[in-house]
């Protein structure tokens, strides 16, 4: 038998962590609990973060929006602040699982699981999101791209809790696009995903653009060269084909039961073509 504690404050979390430094943290349980349950639970004890007040909700300061790590994906989707400021993130979250999974799964969970297929990750990379980590001894903050170090790997240390994802308000994008390729239209794990955000002029000329891909590399794939391809251009076929070539070269996918490496590479490059003619009159 294994203990599961459901603390309601960070103080309580840290107290429990001091007693039980090896305790495994989870919030919604949609990743941790999905494996055959008894086997998972033999590797406890567990700390469930779903009720930790400091970890919940979406708040704003003058310059930033802070999304508590235990904010459920459905709450994130329902947040007017997120819809207004980060529609790309909202759109990506809408593609995760199905309603019940989004009612349980949290943004912090999606980040800490650090799956290459985590659907909120590409937008968070584009939005230059930071993660806020706390432990009994202190607090640190780092870009998500530094926090996630590999498939399932993060810089989270023992005794440390991911408290929030913090995103700067001034993003300056007026166009966004998200597309996920899965094996079906709901309850699907990404085979590849594309998040794209841009600032465009009224004629569709791209001032700046950011691209991020999920599931096609050990971590989210981004490329400065790729992003620069769009600058000063409209999203016409020539530009997109050049971008596609960069994507094909740059991604580093694996083969698994869902798709082959070759397909992932091809479809990632293809996804960018969907943008043809987009970004005008926005």
């Amino acid at each position: 038998m294994v203990d599961v504690r459901v603390p309601s404050s960070l103080d309580e979390v840290f107290r429990l962590l001091r007693e039980e430094p090896s305790a495994r943290l989870f919030a919604g349980g949609t990743d941790v609990m999905v494996r055959s349950f008894p086997d998972t639970l033999r590797r406890g004890p567990f700390l469930c973060l779903e009720r930790v007040e400091e970890l919940r909700g979406v708040n704003e300061s003058a310059t930033e929006v802070r999304i508590g790590a235990a904010t459920r994906l459905s709450e994130l989707i329902a947040s007017p602040l997120v819809a207004d400021r980060f529609p790309l993130l909202r759109e990506a979250a809408r593609h995760i699982g199905a309603p019940a999974v989004r009612n349980m799964g949290t943004l912090g969970g999606n980040v800490c699981t650090a799956s290459p297929a985590g659907d909120t990750l590409p937008p968070l990379y584009i939005l230059d999101a930071d993660v806020e980590l706390r432990s009994l001894t202190g607090q640190r903050r780092m870009p998500i791209s530094a926090f996630i170090t590999g498939p399932g790997l993060t810089q989270l240390e023992e005794g440390e809790v991911l408290c929030a994802v913090v995103i700067g308000k001034a993003q300056g994008f007026n166009f966004h696009h998200f597309e996920k390729v899965g094996q079906r239209k709901a309850m699907a794990i990404s085979i590849a995903s594309l998040a794209f955000a841009a600032r465009t002029g009224g004629d569709g000329t791209v001032v700046k653009a950011r691209c991020a891909f999920g599931s096609v590399a050990p971590t989210v794939f981004t490329s400065r060269v790729l992003d620069d391809t769009f600058s000063g251009k409209t999203l016409d076929r020539d530009v997109l084909e050049r971008a596609a070539a960069i994507i094909r070269e740059g991604v580093d996918p694996i083969s698994d039961i869902r798709a082959s490496m070759e397909y992932r590479r091809q479809v990632a490059a293809n996804l960018i073509m969907r943008l043809e003619g987009a970004g005008k009159d926005r």
């Binding site: 599961v4 459901v6 999905v34 469930c48 459905s74 019940a100 009612n103």
Partner: peptide, 13 residues
């Protein structure tokens, strides 16, 4: 009032 999945939820929750 929120739909959740009881097969991936613990009694503690």
């Amino acid at each position: 009032d929120v739909v959740k999945l009881s097969c991936i939820m613990t009694a503690a929750q």
